[in-house]
Design a protein around this nucleic acid. Structure first.
Lengths: 276, 276
DNA sequence: AACGAATTGGAACGAAAATTCCATTTTTTG
DNA sequence: CAAAAAATGGAATTTTCGTTCCAATTCGTT
């Protein structure tokens, strides 16, 4: 018999990890709960830190943090870290290939599919926290806060991103214009010096978005960009560019990282405007 | 004296790193250029990989990748990795600390805001997985898969949700129509028996969306709903309704749960159509 | 207050990773 | 075409990190 610990198996996903934390956090001794609380608030650090780093940051001894990993169900820190090191497929399969992948998933069942996308969402958020620099985001928010009017452009998959941002900025009372059909002559005519352009495009990049952004930058109006890779043409002339990578399921990507980032940006812009 | 290498100091930022890469990449021997090219395209991997990982992925021996780090100006891989890990060393204060520091300058900083929204995203996704029932999602996907045309409607905050779904369904080859200005007479005229309506509205509910959904349901055309609470008027007549609750930060909500759910739904619908 | 059990943190151990070294191969140059 | 220089990849070395162990401490109980 099993005298002390229930000894359950290791969490196999970020969701499971968080649930396990909920289960045990209550009846954990002081130091271990300290680990749990810190870890919960700094999930993204696990991937890029050593045990000693995490332990020091949480305010406990390395051996205690080690035990924390085991209490959660892992064999040790390494195993836990492995779960948080998301990898992102770099090649982009065509839609035909994606559909083929989809077929391979044997009777996925909608519930299973949802769990997959939720997990991908967790990983996207982790990656976002680890790639967006404090300065880059801050500078972008500051630059956009100074604009008289913020112009938003994004087509295809990026359209939902800018449209949600457009709604938020509107609610916050920040002057913003959503451009529906980038590439039309009328677009250029509405963007004036003193304004700023926020352009979003994901690979394969939308030529209309890039064209409008480029011509705007050439007129010395600041362009701020968001993409899913650093190899984005917008990077050539944008004043700042942020990258939000989305983890994928069978080749399909939800917009968790992008939406989270733009929501943050909108609130940050408003916060900056309020004080001056 | 320094016989061989020019020995410049190490890049202190990612931008400097990339500039240095531009400078030297041209006149680098084959294998080293291979490292440079791979690294440039996979910057995000550095923080979470070992030298051997990077070397293997780049197709060179570990010692070569090692030398690459030195050619760029670092003392070794560790120093280079440090640059890519050091950017998120900031820790957020816990709630206790935050309350204690409340009177001090309340400058959240964009990075903190992002961390808050990322955390809210994690919670939203967790709650989504826990509240959406397998059957509900499955029935909804099945019902919508049978429709000749799927009509999408959602205004304000819900618009980004349906617009992203519209794009995905389009890519998947599932006939769908996005209704931009719900409430107009023309909307009703385009929804026929055999079709289905997917309506999204969050509290406070958009009367236009509800009106179109109700009149559609009254014509015995199936209505599928998504909201952020079960007390949503759509629930009265929708054939199925899903609830995606979003965690908020200072009163603001990102759309993680909703977007994840609708992305799942779109893929599930396509998967069902393919086999039936 | 005293005992026992649980928890903690430091130090020791073992594993894995980073780094260097050197023999071999490739490229350049006279 | 040969010799020298440079580059490469595998093996050896060193350092760092993950993990375990155990003595000291704290906590709960009687």
């Amino acid at each position: 018999m099993d005298s002390s610990a229930p000894e359950r198996s290791a969490p196999g996903s970020v969701s499971e990890f968080l649930e396990r934390l909920d289960e045990i956090q209550e009846d954990l001794p002081k130091r271990l709960r300290q680990c749990a609380e810190f870890t919960r608030r700094h999930l993204h650090l696990i991937a890029v830190s050593t045990v000693s780093d995490m332990a020091k940051a949480a305010g406990v001894a390395p051996s205690v943090y080690m035990r924390f990993c085991q209490v959660v169900g892992f064999s040790g820190y390494s195993e836990m870290q492995h779960l948080f090191r998301a990898r992102f497929a770099e090649f982009r399969p065509s839609y035909q290939e994606r559909l083929a992948n989809l077929r391979k998933v044997d009777v996925p069942g909608a519930r299973h599919l949802l769990a997959e996308f939720a997990e991908a969402g967790h990983r996207s958020l982790l990656s976002l926290s680890n790639t967006v620099t404090s300065d880059g985001l801050e500078r972008m928010a500051r630059g956009m806060a100074e604009a008289r009017v913020i112009h938003l452009v994004g087509l295809r998959r990026a359209f939902s991103v800018v449209s949600s941002m457009s709604y938020m900025l509107g609610q916050l009372g920040v002057p913003a214009t959503l451009h529906f059909a980038a590439g039309m002559l009328t677009d250029e005519e509405t963007v004036f010096p003193g304004d700023a352009l926020f352009a979003v495009t994901f690979a394969p990049f939308s030529s209309e978005t890039v064209r409008l952004a480029r011509s705007t930058a050439e007129r010395d109006i600041p362009v701020y960009a968001l993409s899913d890779t650093d190899r984005c043409p917008l990077g050539e002339f944008a004043k700042e560019m942020l990258v939000a990578r989305e983890d994928e399921v069978a080749g399909f990507r939800a917009l968790n990282a992008s939406i989270t980032l733009t929501t943050t940006l909108a609130v940050a812009i408003k916060a900056l405007q309020k004080r001056g």
